[in-house]
């Protein structure tokens, strides 16, 4: 196991369905992702990007091959270990998945409370700080229903980043954002990579991100067909 890489994948195969309906979604993927980098996965719909993202992110059971996340093998990982590992990750979903009954600040605090390491006041300050960095200082007490799509997405990003995760997994995180907000988010992720060594793996088609990525992985029909670094 190569523990110097936050993510190390070797001979990964994955199927969906059973019996005659069984269909292979990932074919023999092998790759290592360096710490502090911004890796982008691209490919047509159904190419296996999201499946690979969820396998790396400990959200789906590894069926065949090896996925080492932060030094822990995910093949056959126990549920309690998977839960502990997920606390060291940040997830940004395209559909934001905010809790509708919680304010923006409370949603972000949920990302901190899972660690139960700080008091409520410190949590609130940290949550307010990251929301302010993302331009939502005047929306702390707003419920998601009263926020625009872009604002909701920024709250979801703040929630994912609040606890300084070791790895961030994101699915089209800038789809709902305007140019400036998207640039701000990418800059924040890049800065976290440089300062804290946070590794980001992202599925996106946003050309504004592609040109700033450290590495672009291209998937087609479940196969890794290209592994490039932008010029």
């Amino acid at each position: 196991m190569q523990t110097e890489f936050p993510i190390s994948i070797n001979g990964l195969n994955h199927w969906f369905g059973t019996a005659e309906a069984r269909k292979q979604a990932i074919y023999e993927v092998t790759l290592n992702i360096r710490p502090g980098t911004l890796t982008v996965m691209v490919g047509p719909s159904g190419s296996g990007k999201t499946t690979l993202l969820t396998l790396m992110g400990c959200l789906r059971d590894v069926q065949e091959g090896s996925v080492a996340l932060l030094g822990h093998e995910l093949h056959g990982v126990k549920e309690d270990m998977a839960t502990r590992l997920r606390r060291r990750l940040g997830f940004i979903f395209q559909a934001h998945n905010l809790h509708g009954s919680l304010t923006a600040l409370q949603n972000v605090r949920m990302g901190l409370q899972v660690h139960a390491t700080t008091d409520a006041a410190t949590e609130a300050r940290a949550a307010a700080h990251i929301l302010t960095l993302l331009g939502l200082a005047d929306r702390l007490d707003y419920l998601p229903a009263n926020l625009s799509g872009g604002q909701k997405q920024r709250v979801a990003i703040a929630r994912a980043l609040a606890a300084s995760p070791a790895v961030v997994f994101a699915d089209e995180p800038t789809a709902a954002l305007d140019r400036d907000s998207a640039a701000n988010v990418v800059s924040l992720l890049k800065r976290l990579g440089e300062v804290r060594g946070t590794t980001t793996v992202m599925v996106t088609h946003d050309s504004r991100i592609l040109e700033r990525a450290d590495r672009i992985l291209t998937l087609e029909d479940g196969r890794l067909v290209a592994d490039t670094a932008p010029a």
């Binding site: 590992l85 997920r86 997830f91 998945n97 990302g111 899972v114």
Partner: peptide
């Protein structure tokens, strides 16, 4: 989806 989000965030069952 909110409960699934809790699981993804590392909250225990």
């Amino acid at each position: 989806s909110e409960y699934a989000t809790f699981k993804a965030m590392g909250y225990s069952h």
